[in-house]
Nucleic acid binder design. Sequence first.
DNA 1: AACTCGGGGAC
DNA 2: GTCCCAGAGTT
Length: 363
Amino acid sequence: MREMPEPVLEAAEFQRRLLDWFNRHGRHDLPWQCQRTPYRVWVSEIMLQQTQVATVIPYFERFMDRFPTLAELAEASQDEVLHLWTGLGYYARGRNLHKAAQRLMAEHGGELPVASLEALAGLPGIGCSTAGAIIAQSTGQRAVILDGNVKRSLSRLHAVEGWPGRPAVERRLWALAEHYTPEERVVDYTQAMMDLGATLCRRGTPECSRCPFVDVCVAHARGEQRRFPEPKPKKALPTRTTLMLVLQDSGGRVLLEQRPASGLWGGLWGLPQFDDLVALRDWLDVHAPGAALQPNWPAFSHTFSHFKLEITPQPARVVGLDSVGEARCWYDPGNPGRIGLAAPVKSLLASLAPFALAAPEGP
DNA sequence: AACTCGGGGAC
DNA sequence: GTCCCAGAGTT
């Protein structure tokens, strides 16, 4: 407990101020705040990992429309789950959600174990903070959360030095979060902490004048709100290059391959990728003999958090190739199927959909 | 403790 | 262009 910075307020006073602010200025009409079942809260919390609310909302609506219950999610194919995840990123979340749903049906009677933090956090895709959020939001039982919003607010309030990704810093923030979390009104308290960080104590331009803690905030007193939390130490992004084969048959359909189950774009469908033209030609010799290469299209780049990928689309034509082998399919860009696609692939296919027989300008 | 895993919003 | 977001899993 000596790890905990000095609290700026007693817990009861902190809660009173926060909840009073939340009553007047909090968000009360997010899609997962109605019919607050453990299942809906769970799905929302998974989608909201490292993803902003405005981005999540349409995905959440489509997901709930297609999978209204845990049982229906468990019975679906992974392809269909990933299809609804296309564009949301971090696809392991979708795979883990699906896997957890099947495990819950088989081993937990089709219910989330919301009475146990440990049982919840033992499910794939659910860590400490998400487990706490699910319990707090769906049962009202006391549970502590520490997401990006809470980290930002608490690190400013107490001027906690160091990048929150460092375990030592994260431990101090957990201790503070633990200290302030109440026994009562946990649903509102939890939502209020996230709303405070998302709407007031924002990363770029915090609105300190409207903050219920402006008078006790250490960072504000020093005029250093912007310095907290400390940014992640950065390093140069490596650049990788790849060729993406856009092999079309006489009907304009495009050959897709399903990617390995784990790793980048795991389980999604994509274009065959190659390091260089030699490897691409070798592959064509084996899998699509007689295919005719066309001039490549302009390269474009796609930036990930840890590297930049420069993609050169390499179009080719083939006729009379019906059997394409395991984990491959012919995809009609004008009539998309319900499968998961990597974002740049989806963009590339969309750009050629209306002009299946013409070379597009690029995505 | 460091690395992997996405896409988009905000600036 | 940069930064980072309702983090978790793997090494």
